[in-house]
Design a protein around this nucleic acid. Structure first.
Length: 206
DNA sequence: AAGAGGATGGCCT
DNA sequence: GGCCATCCTCTTC
């Protein structure tokens, strides 16, 4: 085993086009406290011209972090109960980000199990909201700098994933631009989430 | 001020 | 495959 990487990926890592960052995040490790997750699936979201991006209609209170510098976490709340985590990237103000969709818990499995009772080891971080649950990432970490050595939330380099192991396809749960293959995952990984096409939800009212 | 719907997940058949 | 919990955020009036 190689020497343990203790230094978070630096800011310049994120100051690149979102697709390049997304690709290189595969195999990288997100750590929050004792729990660490090796990323096996991510999705790229561009800034103002991507109709699927939260930044599409300009800055709001929720997406403000997206318009800031790269290397910060954009965490949002959805469906009344879940959090999802992105990493802001690209030049400052480009408002692009990479959604962390799934990964393999490589440290702190016991702590992750406590947070995800009943889940199999494979499912601990298999899905964007499961991943934040396993890592205990929530609203409090919106805007957190993941490049700081003293940050509780960090992203460190992992083993490089070869090009022929990187697969691409349409983004999950997204109507707009479903033709754009900006979802990326590592071929053959058990922790990659199950693909689900976007289904408009019927509003059940009393 | 109100309504619609969501970058999901868990449980059901 | 379907259903729906649960509440925040944005849009529109």
């Amino acid at each position: 085993m190689g020497q343990r990487q203790l230094t978070p990926l630096p800011r310049p890592f994120y100051d690149r086009p979102v697709l390049a960052v997304a690709r290189d995040l595969l195999g990288a490790v997100v750590r929050h406290g004792e729990v660490a997750v090796r990323l096996t699936e991510v999705e790229a979201y561009a800034g103002g011209h991507d109709p699927a991006s939260h930044a599409f209609r300009g800055p709001t209170q929720r997406n403000a972090v997206m318009f800031g510098p790269g290397g910060h976490a954009y965490v949002y709340f959805t469906y009344g109960m879940h959090f999802c985590m992105n990493l802001v990237c690209g030049p400052d103000g480009s408002a692009s980000a990479v959604l962390l969709r799934a990964g393999e818990v490589v440290a702190g499995v016991d702590a992750a199990r406590m947070r995800r009772p009943g889940a199999s080891e494979r499912d601990l971080a298999r899905g964007p909201a499961r991943l934040t649950k396993a890592l205990a990432v929530d609203r409090a970490l919106d805007g957190a700098d993941v490049t700081s050595r003293r940050s509780a939330l960090q992203v460190v380099a992992g083993e490089r994933v070869p090009d022929d192991a990187v697969r691409r396809g349409p983004r999950v749960g997204v109507n707009a631009a479903h033709d754009v293959p900006w979802r990326m995952w590592i071929d053959g990984e058990a922790t990659v989430s199950v693909y689900r096409r976007h289904v408009p939800r019927v509003h059940s009212k009393k």
